[in-house]
Amino acid sequence: MISYEIVFTVALVVSTFLAVHLEESVHAVASFGFMIILLSGLYFSLGAPFAAVFQLAIGVGTLAVFFLAGEMLASKKEPTQRLRGKLLGVLAAVILSLPSIALSVTPNVQINSKGVPFSEALWGLRGLDVAAQGFVILVISMGVAIILKRRRS
């Protein structure tokens, strides 16, 4: 029986490869969107629900920006790709995904530690980092706004 993790892995590698391989920008961005959703599902299956939700939320925002940029910046004469090239890309991606299913390099280590809960890890251990990062993001967003405004004027 094929486990859903294997299906997720193959689909993840295929969508990732197509995001790079497809010539049309909008199709590539759509494939990238699938990749984000599958990655989020994989995180969920690994027992990291907060990471999965965060990845999905961030990914949706990034996708919106990519779609807008793809529509705005794509040239009118974008090269059209043949179906054969797309299918070859899918085949290459399926072959690329095989090693991660068949091989294993990670040692089978059994560590019996319960670890810290998520809220303690985020706010107790890395709380200062989170606060500093909020400040960095604020400064960067101001910088981006300044770059765009200056160029427009």
Binding site: Y43, A51, F54, S113, G115, F118, A121, L125, R126, V130
Partner: peptide
């Protein structure tokens, strides 16, 4: 095990 990896991922 534990959630520190999730915090780092965020």
């Amino acid at each position: 095990g534990g959630s520190l990896g999730q915090a780092f991922l965020i």
